[in-house]
Computed example of a mutant assay.
Amino acid sequence: MKENENKNEIVEIDDVDREIINLFNEDGRMSYRKIAKLLNVSIGTVHNRMEKLTKNGVIQKFTPVIDHSKLGYNLTTIIGVRVKGGVLENWEDRTAYHKNVLCMYDVTGEFDAILVARFKDTSELDQFIKSLLREPDVQRTYTQTVLNIVKEDLSSSKML
């Protein structure tokens, strides 16, 4: 079966699956033994549920949540980009993996893509924006600087 065949398939999960996901979301290093004890289920149940959740794509990967400010990246920006027609996907492939880009979204409206990026300072942001504008496929950018982060939880499982 091809990877994209199940991409839009809705996966049914039960309360035990939800609790396992919530516990892992709180502490990704929590052992199966501790989860089993907290949920009053067997370690095998936790193991099998995690295998199932990973296999069916509910859990896509295990990754640390990085505090970018601790690494000197204190400037968060939202950047709208308008790209020439027909080349959006190629442009995204080239830009999505830039070190400063955290998120990239295809959107409707005035811009074709929205980037969320972090920079050490305005000089680094300036260089990034100017490099975008030098690209022949980029027609226009619009940059907003985040003043305060009210809520930022990209790994949230609260929708479960």
Rank of each mutant, 00 (worst) to 15 (best):
M1T: 13
K2W: 13
E3Y: 10
N4G: 15
N4L: 15
E5P: 07
E5R: 14
E9Q: 10
E9M: 15
E12N: 11
I13F: 05
I20E: 03
N25R: 08
E26F: 08
E26S: 14
R29Q: 09
M30G: 04
M30Q: 14
M30T: 09
M30N: 08
S31I: 07
Y32N: 13
K34A: 13
A36R: 06
A36E: 06
K37N: 15
L39G: 09
V41I: 13
V41L: 13
I43A: 15
I43M: 15
T45L: 14
T45F: 15
V46R: 09
H47S: 15
H47G: 13
E51F: 15
T54P: 02
T54M: 12
N56H: 06
G57E: 02
I59L: 05
Q60K: 08
Q60E: 11
Q60V: 06
T63L: 05
I66G: 05
D67W: 11
H68M: 12
H68C: 06
S69P: 03
S69Q: 13
G72T: 12
Y73T: 08
Y73V: 09
N74F: 12
I78E: 01
I79C: 00
G80M: 01
G80Q: 02
V81D: 00
V81Q: 00
G85R: 06
V87A: 01
L88Y: 06
L88D: 07
E89H: 10
E89Y: 15
N90H: 05
E92V: 13
E92S: 08
E92W: 04
D93I: 04
T95A: 04
T95W: 00
T95I: 09
A96G: 03
H98I: 02
K99S: 05
K99A: 07
C103W: 10
T108W: 13
T108S: 14
T108G: 12
G109M: 07
E110M: 06
A113E: 03
R118Y: 02
R118E: 05
F119H: 01
F119T: 03
F119D: 01
K120S: 07
S123R: 14
E124H: 06
E124R: 07
L125W: 00
L125N: 02
Q127S: 09
K130H: 04
K130R: 09
L132P: 00
R134Q: 10
P136M: 01
Q139V: 01
R140A: 02
R140W: 02
T141L: 01
T141A: 00
T141E: 00
Y142P: 04
Y142S: 09
T143Y: 01
Q144N: 05
T145I: 12
L147W: 03
N148G: 06
I149N: 12
E152S: 14
D153N: 13
S157V: 03
K158H: 09
L160W: 04
L160P: 02
